[in-house]
Design a protein around this nucleic acid. Structure first.
Ligand SMILES: [Zn+2]
Ligand SMILES: [Zn+2]
Ligand SMILES: [Zn+2]
Ligand SMILES: [Zn+2]
Lengths: 153, 153
DNA sequence: ATTGATATGTTATATCATAACATTTCTTGC
DNA sequence: GCAAGAAATGTTATGATATAACATATCAAT
């Protein structure tokens, strides 16, 4: 069993534990993100399912599926890129915590890294001091990945 | 002379200093952002110019104008909201530094606050350690503003 | 006035996303 | 097994943000 199938199985277990269903279509969309090196749009995922599984999932459904997967904490929506990625900790049991998403501006490669608690506290403190209330402390940053740095040089 | 006009004049001076032209249309778009309590989209700004100045600037032009204003560091583009705001430090001479943008999810009110150097250093260090290179260190956060917190309660 | 540079207009289209309603599929109690 | 309700997916239409390509107008300097 390959890596993607392995993760899918784990995800299915995770869903089952609280009565959610990881249907075939949802698996296909998720596997598209898992197989991809880069962040994908909903429309790119319909393409993927068409090509890979000969299954025509309309974009509308893909959006709903992505919403479901996000609620299950299996994928992240990147607002900076208007694209989606599988969670890097999808098979971990530990608490997810606040993540920093480094998004390559050129190739859409994404790295999801953790931020230490003190830094988050500081940022959050800034927010509260300004009279605002933080909703989702997901940090997204516009970057260049290693490969694109090299090819740009 | 009111606040907006005052800032516009300052901005014009800023542009002149390096041979850039703050045309009337650019002034109108900028004044739309200056007059607004909340972040606005390009299309909302065409509306504003139509209403306020009876001037029909097509959306395409507004996009180009916003691009110009951004290059002049007079406005910021908020990727999280796909909207635009006037820079909070538009009349300051000090270095702009890295900013944290608190965006109210409900009403699009935006607060632009500074982050201290050590926090930025830490975040940037994270990025470099991950093999990425930070392009624009603008932090945008999904929040609720004071007013919307109250009305939600 | 001429000319080149800059700014703006026009038209078409790409891309991302949601609303509203219909249909299918699954689950569960009988 | 089957009826009824819930959940998932399909369908169609449309909204919102954004860019590409090319035309025209305006400005600045000679
Ligand atoms: Zn994650
Ligand atoms: Zn890259
Ligand atoms: Zn600013
Ligand atoms: Zn608000």
């Amino acid at each position: 069993m390959n890596r993607v199938q392995n993760i899918i199985e784990h995800a299915e277990q995770h869903c089952k534990e609280h009565g959610a269903r990881l249907t075939n279509k949802r698996k296909h969309v998720l596997s598209g993100l898992l197989a991809s090196e880069i962040a994908l749009s909903a429309y790119e995922l319909t393409e993927y399912c068409k090509t890979e599984f000969d299954e025509a999932i309309p974009a509308m459904s893909v959006y709903r599926i992505l919403e479901f997967l996000e609620e299950e904490h299996l994928v992240h929506k990147l607002k900076l890129a208007n694209k989606y990625v599988a969670c890097a900790h999808i098979t971990c049991d530990h608490d997810h915590g606040v993540q920093q998403f480094l998004i390559c501006n050129e190739c859409q490669r994404v790295k999801e890294i953790s931020i230490d608690k003190s830094t988050i506290k500081k940022l959050q403190r800034n927010v509260e001091d300004a009279g605002f209330h933080l909703l989702s402390p997901q940090l997204e940053m516009n970057c260049l990945c290693e490969r694109c740095m090299v090819s740009a040089a």
